[in-house]
Design a protein around this nucleic acid. Structure first.
Lengths: 340, 340
DNA sequence: CCGCATCGTCGATACGCATCGACATATCGA
DNA sequence: TCGATATGTCGATGCGTATCGACGATGCGG
């Protein structure tokens, strides 16, 4: 493997000059730059990451802490991972996978060994056990998700409260007087993931100001539980009920239950879920969705951490960003009455 | 951040002694070892990865090249990623994400900059454009998937031929005389992923030796296409046809088509798919599956590359490992007649 | 024509660890 | 008792890059 010394020799300059050509931190004459660049190309030189990290105290690697809990919809997690990785590259950084298995110790390891310059944590829970460690780390950390106490932390997430409001407003406008939220799976709710509460708060606020009835019923993957919830919702109204099912797996079960009751989404009932456009379109009845903007959240998370790394100064050690959500109408919801 | 020099000072030994305590490459007296380990603990010392890489010419990082093509079932990809990451940790290695976006150039970058000691490539296609680059790299690379020309490459994959045989043998034993394979989605087939052919070869061999009729029909996500395939299969027999649908998305569509035809899997027809146990159990009629052992494939891939890295010597530069597949009976297949 | 700032380049050094040869001490056989 | 072998530790060096101070060359104004 060629080194910068080899390049220097080939170009007839000092090694430090090669370094300055690459970093641009000192003026270089056009002539010299050309010579060096030619030599680099000719030798197919690439700077050694280890040496660079050692000398500059920057690895240009960001640690990404991914949850692998089976209850979560893996496909949607991949969406985050994919966008984060690609965005990081755009900032000339790489992504190191940090598995949940290692727990908080893993964070200390990758930071302590200086494998990473900073961290992105996905799926942050309300009372996450890793928070004390995160606060103690002396590198930038961006959380995707909002813990109960976000003080001293940099967080970003979809605006779940807004999402709740939008769903309710939308369904109310379509004429529903009873709106039923089927919760996330037990496993998610029990982890006290903060967004469950934020979403609920949004729905309730909107419902109160509009004057529709909200039902919060258990979700989960158990067909009987969902069936029970559906029946309860039906019993509450003489009109057509509306269902909000944020969780992808819950949507699947709901779909089957409705079908067995002879209810067609978009005709006899309305259903809004959260899903990627691709997935939503693939369903038998294309699903109207509340888009939680995973790609945008991911992009911003990377931008935030890269800005913090750039700044070098400890920057704002606390911030909270909420990404606006978007409703997309497809076929699973009723259309609002004409002229309203 | 404390360095090994700090540790040495605190323990009253030379820096090199600290290094030998950590690596175990030279005998150390119990007394000295204790002093050093105490100092390490007291200072919470962790070796600097960059310096270590520079001196040892080993980063202990493996690059994982992930496909993000939307047609693929992301959930199953996550299964690979998760197991690979965790297994790598067990070998004291970390995983760096290399996105497909960068293409072959990305491989040259992470290897050239020596960010990685080796690579694992997922979803290798029959005629993968990255193969020339892979062959030219001077670091170990393990491919998950078998290209058309595996010479000079280290490959591992599920034994799709065995999988095909198992499915056919199993369905034939259950009394089916017509067995229909619904292909993967067009996008997958068109990429010339080798496993499509290997699977087909397995089914055909088994069908021939047993004497049942095989139908290979188009799969995909289009309902009409699947419906057409189902009708064709029905027309071929007066008995009960069997369907094999390896692709997860195809399974979903097939399920709906069968239901609309009034056909119940496990009663009127048999269906075998490939899916994780969790997913299979979740379906309305638990799906009998052919398990392609993603976790085992992942584990072995990591083991192979770590062995190669350990060996240091270029090791066997060519190898091909096939992981045996497993059939699991659930409710979507007929039971073989008693006493047979 | 001289002093001074600017531009462009060089040499030297530090970064933190692994590793090699050297050396001191302890252990053993003859 | 003495040399030979193990055993345990140290000092020195190199890995490849970034960066700092220094220095020669050039251009400027006075």
């Amino acid at each position: 493997m060629p080194t910068s010394k080899d390049v220097a020799q080939a170009a007839g300059v000092a090694q430090s000059t090669v370094s300055y050509v690459l970093s641009g931190k000192r003026p270089i004459s056009e002539k010299t730059r050309k010579k060096v660049e030619d030599a680099i190309e000719h030798l197919t030189y690439q700077p050694n990451a280890g040496a660079r990290a050692l000398a500059s105290r920057r690895t240009r690697v960001i640690g990404l802490v991914i949850p692998f809990i089976p209850e979560l919809h893996m496909a949607s997690i991949m969406e985050f991972v994919s966008v984060i990785a690609n965005t990081a590259r755009r900032y000339d950084h790489d992504i190191l996978l940090v598995t949940e298995d290692e727990g908080a110790a893993g964070l200390q390891r990758v930071v302590g060994q200086q494998i990473c310059d900073g961290l992105i944590l996905m799926q942050v829970e309300g009372d996450d056990e890793r928070l004390p460690v995160v606060r103690s780390l002396k590198v930038p950390v961006v959380l995707i998700g909002i813990p109960h106490d976000p003080s001293g932390l940099v967080c970003i997430d979809a605006d779940f409260e807004m999402a709740g409001k939008q769903c309710v407003q939308d369904l109310a406008a379509a004429g529903h007087d009873v709106i039923c939220v089927l919760d996330w799976q037990r496993e998610v709710v029990d982890r006290h993931v903060n967004y469950v509460e934020r979403f609920r708060s949004g729905t309730n606020q909107a419902a109160e100001s509009i004057g529709v009835k909200m039902l919060h019923l258990p979700g989960g993957t158990d067909r009987d539980v969902i069936a029970d919830s559906v029946d309860k919702a039906l019993a509450e109204t003489t009109g057509t009920p509306a269902f909000i099912a944020p969780d992808g797996t819950v949507q699947d079960v709901l779909r089957r239950v409705l079908s067995s009751r002879g209810l067609t989404p978009g005709k006899d009932v309305s259903v809004i879920g959260s899903a990627s456009p691709t997935l939503a379109e693939l369903q038998p009845i294309p699903l109207s969705t509340i888009d939680l903007r995973p790609a945008e959240v991911s992009r911003r998370a990377v931008k935030i951490i890269c800005d913090l790394l750039e700044a070098d100064s400890q920057g704002p050690t606390e911030s909270l960003e909420l990404v606006p959500t978007v409703i997309t109408h497809r076929s699973s919801t009723l259309r609002p009455p004409r002229g309203s």
